[in-house]
Structure formats: structure tokens, C-alpha cells
Write a protein that binds this DNA or RNA. Structure first.
Lengths: 303, 303
DNA sequence: TTGACGAATGATTGCGCAATCATTTATCAC
DNA sequence: GTGATAAATGATTGCGCAATCATTCGTCAA
């Protein structure tokens, strides 16, 4: 009987209507993914992990681009929930009150990614951004740099906390001056990195090290240093953030805080699928992935 | 009456069920977008254009990642069509026979992007890759380079045609040797760009210019040249492809064939929305956006 | 053979909306 | 005021499936 039916399916080229299925069963095989940006290389790797973890399952990843706007995010959460997703992955902890309410009341598991600290709405996987910024500062200080600065763009809460951590570590050893923190709401780019280093140097010519809030800025800073014939790492140490593939191939290679973006994506989808399969089966619901300092030539001073 | 209804909607927090709507009307507000890769910066800008063009409309972009596989693409086209999308955007002209059949029979407009040449299934917007490669070669030749090579990765049909065009221009002036074409099926990265230049130089030390099939490779080649103390552009001219933001900030800045990725995305979504709004209203259904040679220091030899 | 039980199969209902048709109400010219 | 037309409103049906219930069939022990 089953065989006969399956033969007919093949012969007629039948395939079920997902809309009818969703209407009748009140659930779909869609997994909603909310990212603040798709044009930010940081999220490419997260995406890669999520795709890899959901390949060959019946689930379909539906991406929403919030453009770093909590309101757009709120609207998208509404749109997604209306479609009765099987699960939801959202970036960070900074949803609007209403969005948090919707997520808390959702009839599906929810994973918050890229951050660690606050208790999650449901589950979370990420790392502590303040600790990461702190680690960057400690590294520069231990390398002997004494006039550290920092540059940052597109200041979402996570970026801000990285800079907070950096500032804190510098203050602890009495090496901080707030003038050496150059930030802008503009979205980050290599060109902006060059510009921000320029601004930093114009504010304080004695700056001997800079923490760049992400790799675009790091590469930009490196190129600007090169243009000005400022030697890296001797005259200027550069520590980048995220460590995308490119940074290790720069010349000199960039020291960076490497963030486990692929792993975060993979763990998030794994947790989500497990929880969809068997509700309440996931035990560790709030995961700190940590980060890693990768020391390369851009901070490796002789002596 | 209308007012009373809308008040009730607000009060009850009612929002229509998209599944029921899709079932009853046989159409949704989803626009399917098939890209070969999301971790390729090339498509970020396309995406940006599409998002910008669909913002504040009732349409929702649904992304599918084909991972450069025609079979995955075929499967995704099936998945998308089952959802009765309002429109579809697919990359390139290399669909499987079956996929082309499905697209041709789709009850919605279809735009093929990133390529120009073949007659489209429905509509298309892109540029001629062979002509772009040809232009790169002509530029290097006109700069006086006499031993041009080329490196390429991830050889989809478009990449291949770029290299074909490059080869053709070199052959026309008797400057070609197939040994100076180094290609690999690996996916492109900066590290790979370094490696491919290494390979190219090991095959023929007299190479004095290289065309890189995309910017990752171009930046990698530049970094490798730097490491080997090969001066750019004097000893080695480098021409990159696509011209993402970063290339102009390299040191020396990279000459590149700039491709109008944002514009392609924007035009594609505009054509699609117009056609959804009013079938057969779009007149120019096969658009050649062209490309632009941007000359910078990496090919600007003194004399 | 009989009864009892579980598995396989068949028949029915409702999900929430859009589309269609049937009805009522408003609008206007004469 | 009348009739004719257009607009607004109301009632009904069906989209294609999943879930539920009702039925039949097969299996086995007594």
C-alpha cells in the first residue's frame, strides 16, 4: 500500500503544499534567523555554521536582516512568529521589551547568539565581549605599549562592551586617557579604519598601540600606518577583533582576538534542533564559548 | 465600519495567518533569492541592493544558498516554488535542465542576475564576464606588461569566462602561455591568493603581471608580493576583480575591474517588483550593466 | 472456530483565509 | 417620489493538508 502511494507520488510529481501543511498543523519547518547585518563578514561564518548544521535536515533557514535596528528586529520577530517557525535564532540580548515578550511567549525554542552574560530568554551561545576587550588591552600592556588607544564603529551594545573592557584594563594600570577612544556610529569599513587611525593620531601623537573593534578597522589602520611610514609593531601595535581569514595574511600579520563564529552558529543550530526534536532535552542552555587571543607580528615587538 | 474593524484588529492584536492566506490565494509575499554563496563578499553588495529595493514593501526576501551546486539549486527552486513565491531571483544561467523547466513554468516573474549573454528564462541583469576578463588583459598589455599570468579559484562558469576573455586578449597579441594560468577548484580566500601567486611564480619566474579572478585572490597576491619583496607595480602588476571596498585601501591600491553589484541587486528587485505589480510591464528584460576598469597604483608603472 | 487485540486503512472535520456570490444600503437623475 | 446604478456589507465555499475518529483487516491464543 505504502509502495503504491509512493509510486503515485513519483508518477504525478506530487509534493505537499507547505501552506496547507502549516495551516493544518500550526507548525512549519522554517527556522528564523535574525542577524543585524548580512554585509558584515562577522556573520558570514555564523551563517556557515548554521547552514552546515542544518544541511540534510528538513528544516529551512529563513534569514532576516535587522540592520542593527531593534525596531526592525521587533517587526521581523512578529513576521517570523506569524509563520509558526520550528525555531528561532536571534542576535544578542538587546531586543525591545515587546520583542522579548513575543519571544518568551513563542511556541518554539529560541537561541540568542553572539553574546554571553545575561540570562537568555530560552537558550544562548556566545562570549563575553567585555572580557574580550579586556584581554586585548592586557595583551598590549604586556607587550610594553604604554599609550594605548582604541577605535570603534557601529556601536551596538556588544561593540561598546568590548571597548568598555578595553578601557577598564587600561585604567587599572593607569594608562588610560579617554581622548584616545575614537568612536563613530558609521558602519565599519577599511576606509573608515584608516580614517579613525588618522583621527586618533591627530588627537594624540604619542599613541603607540591601537585596539580595533573589528577586522575591517584593523586592516584599515594597518594600511594607514603603512602609508604614513609608521612601523608596525615597533612604533604602533595593532590588535584587531574577530580574526577573519584575511587578517593572518596581512603584512605584517595582525594580532587579533579570534571569536568562534562558526562554532557559535553550529552550536546554536544544534541546540535548536535538539530542542525541537525533544523539548527540554537540552541541558546546557547558556553557553560561554570564550575567545582566543592570537598573537601575530602586529604586536610582536623586538625586546 | 472600516474604522470599527481596524480598532478591533488593534485591540485584539489580530494579525492574519500567512499560511491560510497562501492557501486561499495561491500566492505569498515571499521573494526567493538564490545565491551560490553567502560567505562570498561579492554577493553582500547584491543583497544590499535587493534589500534596499524591497524595504518598506510588503515583500519578504527569502534567501537560499546553493553552495555553487546546480543540484542544490534545483532542490531549492523546487522548495521555493512550492511556497508560491511572488517572484524569484536566481544567480546565473547554469541551471539544470529540470530547474530551467521549473522556472519557465513558474507562475511568477524570474530574474537571473550576475551574467549577461544568453537569453534569459524571463528577465536578466548582469554583465559580460568574458568582456570583463578581456578588458583586464588589455589594460595590463597597455601598461606594458609582457608576461601576463592569471589566477582563479572556485571555477563556476562566470569565473571561467573571465579567464577565457583574459586568455583571448593575451593570445591576440601573442603574449600567452597556458602555463601562466593557475586555477584551482578550491574556494577563494586571501591565503589562497598568496598560494596561487607562489605557484604562478614557480611555474614562470618572468611573470610581470597577474590578473586575479576576484578580490580575495588579488589582496592575497599583493601580500605575497610584499612578503617576497617583489615591487608592485614595477616588477609585478596586479589587476583584481570586483573591486570591493577594501581594494582601494590596500597599499599600493589595487587596480580592479569594478562590477556593479549593488546596482545589479537593485535593478533586479525593481524589475521583479514592477513585473509582480503589473505583468509584462517591464520592457527591457535583458540588461547589460557593463563594468568599469578602475586604474590604481598596482598597475601604474612609471614610464 | 471464536474472540480479542493491534495494526492498517478509510472517512470526516476544521485550520483561517480569499474569492465569489447574494443581499442590502446609499447615491443620483429624472 | 421612482427607478436605476453603484457601493457597501453579509453569507458561503473551498484551498490542501493534519488530526481525529470509525472501520476493516490480519494475527494469535484458547
Amino acid at each position: 500500500m505504502r509502495i503504491r502511494v509512493e509510486e503515485a507520488i513519483r508518477k504525478l510529481g506530487y509534493s505537499p503544499d507547505p501552506a496547507a501543511s502549516a495551516l493544518a498543523s500550526k507548525v512549519t519547518y522554517n527556522i528564523g534567523l535574525l542577524l543585524p547585518s548580512l554585509t558584515n563578514t562577522v556573520f558570514e561564518d555564523v551563517l556557515e555554521g548554521i547552514y552546515q548544521g542544518s544541511e540534510d535536515t528538513r528544516f529551512f533557514i529563513q534569514i532576516g536582516d535587522t540592520r542593527y535596528s531593534a525596531l526592525k528586529e521587533e517587526a521581523l520577530i512578529g513576521t517570523f512568529l506569524r509563520q509558526k517557525p520550528a525555531g528561532l535564532i536571534v542576535t544578542g540580548f538587546e531586543q525591545t521589551e515587546k520583542a522579548r515578550g513575543m519571544l518568551a511567549g513563542a511556541h518554539c525554542p529560541v537561541v540568542q547568539i553572539m553574546d554571553f552574560g545575561e540570562p537568555p530568554i530560552d537558550m544562548s551561545v556566545g562570549f563575553d565581549h567585555e572580557a574580550a576587550g579586556y584581554a586585548a588591552a592586557r595583551h598590549l600592556i604586556e607587550c610594553g605599549y604604554r599609550t594605548p588607544g582604541a577605535v570603534g564603529a557601529r556601536l551596538d551594545s556588544r561593540s561598546r562592551r568590548r571597548l568598555d573592557g578595553f578601557r577598564k584594563a587600561c585604567q587599572e594600570v593607569g594608562l588610560w586617557d579617554e581622548h584616545r577612544m575614537v568612536i563613530t556610529p558609521q558602519s565599519s569599513s577599511v576606509g573608515l579604519g584608516r580614517h579613525l587611525l588618522e583621527e586618533l593620531l591627530s588627537r594624540d601623537q604619542s599613541v603607540d598601540a591601537v585596539f580595533c573593534n573589528n577586522d575591517d578597522l584593523g586592516i584599515g589602520a594597518l594600511m594607514e600606518a603603512r602609508r604614513r611610514l609608521i612601523s608596525v609593531p615597533e612604533q604602533l601595535g595593532i590588535c584587531s577583533f574577530h580574526d577573519m581569514e584575511m587578517t593572518q595574511h596581512m603584512y605584517p600579520a595582525l594580532t587579533a582576538i579570534a571569536t568562534p563564529r562558526f562554532q557559535i552558529g553550529k552550536m546554536a543550530i544544534d541546540m535548536l534542533l535538539a530542542e525541537i526534536e525533544e523539548p527540554h532535552s537540552v541541558k546546557r542552555r547558556n553557553i560561554d564559548t570564550g575567545f582566543k587571543l592570537v598573537v601575530r607580528d602586529s604586536t610582536r615587538r623586538a625586546g
